[in-house]
Simulated scan of single mutants.
Amino acid sequence: MMIIDGSLGEGGGQILRSSLTLSMVTGKPFAIENIRAGREKPGLMRQHLTAVKAAAAICGAETRHAEIGSTRLVFEPGRIAAGAHVFNIGSAGSTSLVLQTLLLPLALADAPSRLVIQGGTHNLAAPPFEFVARAFLPLQARIGFRVSIRLTRPGFFPAGGGEIVVEIEPSAKLEPLILETRGALVRRRIEAQVANLPFAIARREVVHAKEMLGWADAELAPCQIDGAPSTGNVVLIEVEHEAVTEVFTGFGRQGVSAEAVAASAAREARDYLAGAHAIGLHLADQLLLPMALGAGGRFTTGPLSDHTRTNITTIQRFLDVPIRTHSLAEGCAVELLAAS
């Protein structure tokens, strides 16, 4: 039984999610202790527990200590069963993070799967639906993972109530992912969504982001979202280059001005555009697992986050995958060989 320390590095839920994915694919059981020790409320929250139960459901795993608030978990995987599954987080917990736990094991299975995941689709500290659909999944397709996703109902923090539907086909031939340069700029867009809130909020946000970035009015897209069961607001700044699309986000919340929400996303976009590295902070972290379980590859990014370093350590507990990092003038190059 492999023992994982959940307080490692940034001590968040990613250690648990990556361990679940890797355990399902490799068949290696693990016990994790000190789950989310680095968070204000340690232990399993609803979205983490949903990920555990969902992982157990698709591979027939035996689990122990799988309950809200638990700081320890034992997970003994069985055989992955592709097919149709519905998982309800029961809160505004992130549907995207539950999806990322299940995606690769099902993509590497020998039959199609269909996932319906209910909960939050636009959450603080988690990739929103648009990031997954526009930035993350197109790169998975380049590796050979065949996945489509649609948003059937938006669910904003803190009420949730959203739903995504994901279709996963058995993987095609897996190819190395090489992302050393962005290529030419193709498109820029500042989008602000409001649900059950005044449209003026979205308009203020796109105007403020435009002023910070110096973009044109034609690149602004304020919009009213229909069908959300609660109020919600998100700013999405999309930058599409030939090789990669990045999406930078800011989430509206009570007591924070529209201008402050827009500014948080605009600063991230501005910092990325000021550099020459191919991918941003969040994609760097999220590409490690598909590349490690795929055919490897390499990419350039900014300075590595604690999140990314922790994920590298977790991956190397399960896989014999050399992951090399090299300092560059403005950031870092990361190289992965295929799993042996």
Rank of each mutant, 00 (worst) to 15 (best):
D5N: 13
Q14Y: 07
T21E: 06
G27W: 05
G27K: 13
P29L: 10
R39T: 04
L44C: 05
M45S: 12
H48V: 07
A54C: 12
A55H: 03
E62S: 14
A82V: 14
T95D: 09
S96I: 07
D110N: 15
A111Q: 15
L115Q: 05
T121N: 10
T121Q: 09
H122I: 11
P138S: 12
P138Y: 02
R142H: 09
F156H: 00
F157S: 08
A159M: 07
V165P: 00
A172R: 10
L174G: 09
L174S: 09
P176C: 08
L177F: 02
L179I: 04
N196F: 01
F199I: 14
I201G: 06
I201W: 03
R204N: 14
E205V: 04
V206K: 00
K210L: 09
E211T: 15
C223N: 11
I225K: 10
V235L: 01
E238Q: 10
A243E: 05
E246W: 01
R270N: 13
Y272I: 05
G275C: 06
L289V: 15
M291R: 02
A295I: 03
G296H: 02
G296A: 10
T301V: 05
H307S: 09
T308H: 02
R309Y: 01
N311S: 12
D320F: 03
D320L: 05
V321L: 01
L328V: 03
E330I: 12
E335H: 03
A338H: 06
A339S: 13
S340E: 09
